[in-house]
Design a protein around this nucleic acid. Structure first.
Lengths: 361, 361
DNA sequence: CTATTTTCCGGGTACGTTACCGAAAGATAG
DNA sequence: CTATCTTTCGGTAACGTACCCGGAAAATAG
C-alpha cells in the first residue's frame, strides 16, 4: 500500500549541488531574477535543461506567499432576456472550488450586454485591482480591443470565452466554432424537412457586434446547403422584446408562407416558439435555436422547440479558469483554441446534458 | 499583483497550541492513529471541529512519502473488433498526467473481452500489487462481483466505468444511462423516418453479460415508441465476424423488407453499414449505432452511417481516475453516479467531438 | 592604494504536514 | 520497592521551494 516515491525528479537541491552553487542562486535563475553573473547563469541553465527540471508545484505553491487573482469579465445574468451566462458562471465557480486550495482566487465582474458603456467602466474597475489573469467575454469588440491593449502592457494574460477576437494574442479562446454549428443546423434541417422546404434564419439582437457573431452561424448554414437549391431567407430583428419579435416574425411568415424550418441564431428561440405555439403552427415548422437556458429547455421539453444547439457553457467557464490556472500555476503551455463540442439537445436527451454539473438530474 | 494570503485557515499548529499538545499528537488524531489517550483525543477533535480544520493538501502531499497507486481493469483494445477502449485509456492517461505531480500513479491491467477467464486472472494479478484504488469495467458480472468482494475486504475503493453493477457499494459509477440512450435513438428514428417505417434492432455480441447491457438500450427504444404502433423487430447475432453478421442481417432483411431504420445497440454498427453499402441500400435505411470508434467515424463521414450515439468515452476514463483522486487525495465526497451526456454524432459534427482530447482536429 | 558602491552569491528560515525517535509518565511484574 | 514493559506524548528532521538578509568579491571612485 505504501512505498517510497520514485526519486527520479531532481530538485533545486540537486541542481545546486551539480553547479556548485547555493540553492538561492538556482532559484534566482529559475525565476529570472537579477543578481547572477552570466557565466553561472548559463551553467545553471544548462544543468536545468540537462536534468529536464520540473519544479514541484506543491512545494512551490506552499512556499509562495502569493495568491493568484483571476478576474472574470462577463455579461450580467439577466433572467428576463436570457440566463445563458448562469452556466459559465457555475463552471467558473466549480473551477475555483477545485483550485482555491492552490492559492487561486476568482473575482467576478459583470457588465450589461445592453449598455456598452458599462463594459468600459467594468474593465477600468478590473485593472484597478491587482490581477494576474483575466477571463473575458469580448461582447463589444472595440472596447475589448482597448481593454486587452492595457492587459498586454501590464503583461496580464487573458482568455476569450464564448466569442473570439482573432489575432489578439490571447492566451487562448474557449467557445464554439460558430460556422460549424450553423453547418450542423443545416444537417438537422435536411434530415427533418422535405427537400425543398424553405428555411428562415432569424438573427435577433440589437447589438451590432453580437450580430457579427450571429452572422457566422448563418454562413455555416448556407454553406451546408450550398449545392442544393434549398430556399433560404434571412430576417434581422433588432428589438428583443416579445411583441417586436412577434410582429417581425409574423411579417416574415406572411411573406414566405412556405417556411418549414426556422433557425434562430441565438438563445432567443423561446420567444419564437411562443409565437408559433400561439399560432398553432409549432408542429408544422421545425424550430432550431441555441443555448441551454431554462426557458429554452422548458419549451424543448414541451415540444415547442425541436433542437437546441449547445456548446457546453458551464464547461467553457470551467476550462477558461483552468486554462489560466494551467498557464499561471502549472506553467504549462495551453492550446490556443478550445472549440467546444457541438451538442444537439432534444426533448429526449436534455435531462442528461452535463447533468453532473448542475441540478437537472 | 502580490499579496499575503488570508491567514484564515488554521493548521495543526494552531490546533496544537489551543489543545496544549504537540503537533505530533494532533497529527495522530487526525489520522486516527493509536497512542493518544481518549481524553486528549476528544479534546483535540473538538477543537478540530470548532476550527473547521481543513488540511492543506499541498503540504500533505509534499510531506507524505507515499505514492497512491491506482489500478485500471479494462478490456484490451482490439483494433479488429472495436477500438472503443482507446479513448477511455486516453482519458485515463490525461488524468494521470495531471495528477502525477500529486503522487498518484496509474497502473493499467487489461483483460480479454472474449475470454472471461482472463478477467479472473487479471484481477488476481491486481490484488497482488499494493493498490489504493481501482477503476473497473465490470464486463463480466459474476467475476466482477467476486473481485469487488475482495476489494471490500481489503478496504480498497473501486469505481465502475461504462457499465454499472447496481447495489455494489462502488465509490461511484461513471458511464451512460443505457435506457435513455435507446430512448434517444427512438427520437432520431421518429424524426428521420416515415411514421410507420419498420425498425430493426440488432444486438451483436457473443457474451451474455454484455447482452444484458444491450438489452437496456432496446428497452429504451421500445419505450419511446410505446404509444405508437411503430413496427419493431429484434435480431440477436452471436457471431461478431463480418460474414456471420451479413448472413444474419440478410436473413432478417429478407424476412422484413419494410425495414427503414436499423438500431445497432453497440459499436459493431460499422459492419452493418458495410453490408448495406454493398447491397446499395445504405441510403434507404437509416442506420444508428454506438461509439466513436475510428471505423465508425470513418463510415459516418462517408455517409454510410447516419448517427452515432456516444457517451464521451475519454471523459469517462478521465473522470473515473479523477473520482478516485478526489476521494483518496482530496478526501471530498464524490457523487454516486456520473451519467455521461448522450451525444449525437453526425457527419457534420464529429470533427468537433471532444476534439481537444485527441488528434481528430 | 584605500574607500565606497555594485554585483554576486550563500546561509538560513519559512510554508503546513508527515513520521521517526526517544522521553516521560503509568502500569505491571518480580 | 525496583525493574521492565506500555502507553502517551513532545521534539524535530524532512518534503521542495521562495525569499530575506548579510557577507564576500569585484568594480568603480577618490
Amino acid at each position: 500500500m505504501k512505498k517510497k516515491a520514485a526519486e527520479q525528479p531532481f530538485g533545486v537541491k540537486e541542481i545546486a549541488r551539480r553547479a556548485n552553487v547555493a540553492i538561492a542562486t538556482v532559484d534566482r535563475v529559475i525565476h529570472n531574477r537579477p543578481g547572477v553573473s552570466p557565466k553561472t547563469k548559463s551553467k545553471i541553465e544548462a544543468i536545468i535543461r540537462e536534468l529536464n527540471y520540473q519544479p514541484n508545484i506543491l512545494a512551490r505553491r506552499l512556499a509562495s506567499r502569493h495568491i493568484l487573482r483571476l478576474a472574470t469579465v462577463l455579461p450580467k445574468v439577466s433572467s428576463q432576456e436570457t440566463d445563458f451566462w448562469t452556466l459559465p458562471v457555475a463552471g467558473i465557480q466549480k473551477a475555483e472550488e477545485e483550485i482555491k486550495q492552490f492559492g487561486v482566487k476568482v473575482e467576478p465582474f459583470y457588465f450589461d450586454l445592453n449598455d456598452r458603456k458599462s463594459f468600459g467602466k467594468v474593465t477600468k474597475q478590473v485593472l484597478k485591482n491587482p490581477v494576474d489573469g483575466i477571463l473575458l467575454a469580448p461582447s463589444f469588440i472595440e472596447e475589448s480591443v482597448a481593454f486587452i491593449r492595457s492587459c498586454k502592457e501590464l503583461n496580464i494574460p487573458y482568455v476569450f470565452i464564448n466569442s473570439d477576437i482573432p489575432q489578439q494574442e490571447s492566451l487562448c479562446y474557449i467557445g464554439p466554432d460558430l460556422f460549424r454549428s450553423g453547418y450542423q443546423a443545416g444537417q438537422l434541417i435536411r434530415y427533418c424537412t422535405p427537400r425543398n422546404a424553405r428555411v428562415l434564419v432569424l438573427n435577433i439582437s440589437h447589438e451590432i457586434e453580437d450580430h457579427h457573431h450571429l452572422l457566422r452561424k448563418e454562413e455555416g448554414l448556407r454553406a451546408y446547403f450550398q449545392d442544393t437549391k434549398r430556399p433560404i431567407v434571412k430576417k434581422d430583428i433588432r428589438q428583443t422584446d416579445q411583441a417586436s419579435i412577434e410582429k417581425e416574425l409574423s411579417k416574415a411568415l406572411q411573406q414566405h408562407a412556405d417556411v418549414r424550418a426556422i433557425f434562430v441564431t441565438n438563445s432567443r428561440v423561446a420567444a419564437v416558439s411562443r409565437y408559433l405555439e400561439k399560432k398553432g403552427i409549432d408542429k408544422d415548422i421545425l424550430l432550431i435555436g441555441y443555448d441551454f437556458t431554462k426557458e429554452n429547455v422548458s419549451r424543448l421539453d414541451q415540444g415547442h422547440i425541436d433542437f437546441l444547439i449547445c456548446q457546453q457553457p458551464q464547461e467553457q467557464g470551467y476550462r477558461g479558469i483552468m486554462a489560466l490556472y494551467q498557464h499561471l500555476v502549472m506553467k504549462v503551455p495551453v492550446e490556443k483554441t478550445h472549440f467546444m463540442p457541438i451538442d444537439i439537445i432534444t426533448k429526449e436527451n436534455h435531462a442528461f446534458y452535463n447533468c453532473d454539473d448542475h441540478d437537472y438530474c
